[in-house]
């Protein structure tokens, strides 16, 4: 059962989340809610030049939404802005691929564990929640800086 949805990697991130908790300083913050289920997440982004210095987050929801925020932190914090957006695009493509997209572990790291979630349309939004909040916060911070 559930093996295709709840990979061990996802459960590990859920039980021991990486980088959880909202931190200062930050350049932008975004709060996203999934109104159909009540999952919510707040994501903060801070920049250091062309790099993402930190992605911090807090929220509540199912194991999929919270584990995916942990993976977001792991993949994006410390990377360049360009790499972060490329990773975000790859993760979104994987989640919207209806299980037909072969994930690239070099790009997505632990994010490949979510490939099975893409086959459950009702849960895709859970996996994307923190990534959408990150994209929103990062885009607004960059717009304010005029980049």
């Amino acid at each position: 059962m559930s093996e295709s949805l709840y990979q061990e990697i996802i459960l590990d991130h859920y039980k021991q989340p990486h980088g959880r908790g909202l931190r200062e300083p930050f350049d932008a913050e975004s709060h996203h809610v999934n109104p159909t289920c009540g999952d919510e997440i707040t994501v903060r982004v801070s920049f250091d030049g062309a790099k993402i210095a930190d992605v911090s987050y807090d929220g509540q929801g199912c194991s999929i939404s919270q584990a995916s925020a942990s993976v977001l932190h792991e993949l994006v914090a410390g990377s360049t802005v360009d790499d972060a957006f490329a990773t975000e695009a790859a993760f979104t493509q994987l989640m919207q691929g209806k299980g037909q997209v072969e994930p690239d572990e070099d790009v997505l790291g632990d994010g490949i564990a979510f490939a099975g979630v893409a086959r459950y349309p009702a849960r895709v939004k859970c996996a994307l929640l923190s990534w959408m909040a990150f994209k929103d916060a990062a885009a607004r911070a960059l717009a304010e800086e005029g980049r």
Partner: peptide
């Protein structure tokens, strides 16, 4: 979380509703 409860029950053929 209830959504995880519901998902695992569903896999076992038990239908419940979860949420608010």
């Amino acid at each position: 979380h209830p959504h995880d409860v519901g998902q695992v029950l569903d896999e076992q053929g038990v239908a419940v509703r979860v949420g608010h």
